[in-house]
């Protein structure tokens, strides 16, 4: 199974690549070209950076990537990678993939960025890995227009935001599974086993 990390200059991909590679048969590669990143069995949008810079890198392949996701290419978007699946963001100019309806807006809280471990409530993203406490490092959250795509919620101060979204074979998570210890690694493994085969 070819698993491709689209590298839009996000930097640290080591832990994520290693977490994905723990699944037998997963062949993990990193691709900087958005169009070529679609020549894969599974696409992963990793999670560090700024929205504006990331969509600029994504732009040449945006339509092709959106079409591929609509046609069933399994995809896991993490943190900023999840935000790229939405229409746009308060953080920067440019259009996201628009696979999920809704915008990305700043957390409505006193303590921003939210940094640390927080609970996921009403979680039902994957059958093989239930989430409890996971690691967050973010200032913005995805306001899904259709609440039925939200498969888990987290509350920071008074702001309840989507921890995870899923439609078809595309999953987005606001937390960092690759930094959420054993439970997070299990989540990544379950994604590859359940959504991607």
């Amino acid at each position: 199974m070819r698993v491709t990390l689209f590298d839009y200059g996000a930097g640290n991909l080591h832990s994520l690549a290693k977490a994905l590679a723990t699944v037998p048969g997963a062949e993990v590669r990193v691709q900087e070209d958005p169009v070529r990143s679609l020549d894969t069995d599974v696409l992963v949008l990793p999670g560090v950076g700024a929205f504006g810079a990331a969509v600029a890198r994504l732009e040449p392949g945006r339509e092709a990537m959106r079409a591929a996701l609509e046609q069933g290419l399994p995809c896991l978007g993490i943190c900023l990678g999840m935000q790229l699946l939405f229409e746009g963001s308060d953080e920067g100019e440019g259009a996201g993939l628009g696979y999920f309806a809704g915008r990305v807006t700043r957390l409505a809280a006193k303590r921003v960025p939210e940094i640390g471990w927080n609970q996921v409530e009403d979680e039902r993203t994957l059958a093989g890995a239930r989430l409890d406490t996971v690691y967050y490092a973010h200032s913005l959250a995805c306001r899904a227009a259709d609440a039925s795509v939200v498969t888990g919620w987290t509350t920071h101060e008074a702001d309840r935001f989507p921890a995870a979204v899923r439609r078809g074979r595309v999953v987005g998570v606001q937390f960092h599974p690759e930094k959420s210890s054993t439970a997070g690694v299990r989540f990544v493994q379950a994604f590859l086993r359940e959504v991607a085969p």
Binding site: N12, H14, S15, A17, K18, A19, Y135, A137, E178, K179, S180, S181, T182, G184, V185
Partner: peptide
Amino acid sequence: VRRTAEQLFIP
């Protein structure tokens, strides 16, 4: 740091 990040799944 590289060797550690490849085996550590916490920040």
